[in-house]
Design a protein around this nucleic acid. Structure first.
Lengths: 247, 247
DNA sequence: CGAGGTCTTGATGTAGCTCAATCCCTGTGG
DNA sequence: CCACAGGGATTGAGCTACATCAAGACCTCG
């Protein structure tokens, strides 16, 4: 168990997905964030396959690297990691997907998924059959802009992770991660609060061992760069963190 | 001076670009590789701005991070590095572009360039005004597929660099770089030969210091993982390299 | 021939890896 | 209700790979 947020998810729901109904895209509550943001009424007529809404528990996987890519996913809530396995058996987390992000774009170009998508915090996602998106992307230019934005966001995050989270001392990487999370998490008002991950995931994001990740976080707590408000939830003190980040 | 390939480029041509004429896209010699690969005759009528062909000398820059993005570039030959500057003043090379690759895709979505594009080996490029590509991408779906492939290629390379070239020991990173170059360089028949970069660039690609890069390469020479056939050009012995890569 | 740049190599310090023990938390079963 | 088992987090001790600082080699150009 890693994360006591909100109500307890049943063990079962943590390894499986639950069907939550068929999505009503036109009335989507995160429509402005979603891939289909710019679609118009008649565009929706082009959708001939069901778009399902699914709930995935923490630890479950949307898809595995190498699987035939039959669908894209829009993350409506929760948090998903994209994992790439290394030749030596280790793993590296290459991106985090949250509200509004798209997983599996690569199936529009290739055949198979290139990462494994694993749920970090219980997630509500829409599954968009590949054919639906492909068809729409040919028929309406309104989807293109959104698709390009998605691709762009992926590249941006990839570059940011390389330069920000895989460069410099472990200390500065952790500091940058805190700052990054602080920016990106919803409650980022005065002194932002962020929910952290398992030390193992931390290591896989930053390219360090779990022990080092643990040590640095512990040190940050002691030195007062962050304050643990509850198990694995931290208030970030941005000034000293920024200091530590810029080594 | 870093690289004695081919005839000497004048000092001047190494910091400036030379205009080589207006491109004839329809008769492009690398048409099948280029962004406009799938365009049809009448699509070209939609191009209302000149597409210039330019030659950039080693060391010159196509654009700088932060510049207003007025154009995309297709690399016809040569080699270009995408560089991101770090908060601490250092720099990190996040991608390499060669024959057929596109630089500056981000200007289709945002305003400014996100990297600096610096020429490593004298390059012939086509400059595509942003408006031309934007317009075409609205008018013809045939460009979309190509655009998506380009985006996809960027993401792929970014992920590959994170997992392959920024993970593991310096030794294995260098080995993986050699193997990567061997795959991607033209002459990769029996024992592939690759042209290396300055030690400083090596370091910036692998996230290590120039000294470490130098030491590892020197060690590879001594241990016979590679053979220097001429200054900074190496024959790669794939088996032992693969061995070293998989630590 | 001398100047400047890059590459190489050495000596030394240290950050982070490795291996391993302990602690802590939560869920489980008596 | 409590004791226990299991998994993650923390901490320690020792070792190694890499950074750092600095000197020298090599090459090209003026």
């Amino acid at each position: 168990m890693r994360r006591p947020t909100g109500e307890d998810t049943l063990r079962k729901s943590r390894i499986e997905a639950a069907w939550k109904g068929q999505a009503e895209c036109a009335g989507c509550t995160i429509r402005d964030l979603a891939l289909f943001a710019d679609l118009q009424e008649d565009d929706f007529d082009l959708i001939h396959l069901p778009i399902d809404e699914l709930e995935f528990g923490a630890g479950s996987t949307l898809y595995n690297a190498g699987d035939e890519g039959r669908a894209l996913f829009t993350v409506r809530s929760g948090l998903v990691k994209l994992v790439q396995y290394l030749p030596d058996g280790g793993q590296r987390i290459v991106r985090l997907l949250r509200r509004g992000d798209t997983a599996g774009l690569e199936v529009l170009v290739g055949e198979a998924y290139e990462h494994s998508a694993v749920v970090l915090r219980p997630a509500l996602v829409c599954r968009l059959p590949r054919e639906v998106v492909k068809r729409l992307s040919v028929e309406t230019p309104r989807l293109h802009t959104q698709l390009m934005k998605r691709w762009h966001a992926q590249v941006r995050q990839a570059d940011e992770w390389l330069t920000g989270l895989s460069t410099g001392s472990a200390r500065s990487r952790v500091a940058r991660l805190f700052l990054h999370l602080a920016e990106v998490e919803p409650a980022c008002t005065p002194e932002p609060e962020v929910e952290l991950f398992s030390r193992e995931d931390l290591g896989a994001m930053l390219g360090v061992t779990t022990e080092t990740a643990s040590r640095v976080v512990a040190d940050f707590k002691r030195s007062g760069l962050v304050t643990e408000v509850r198990s694995n939830r931290f208030r970030c003190h941005t000034e000293p963190l920024r200091e530590a980040a810029g080594e």
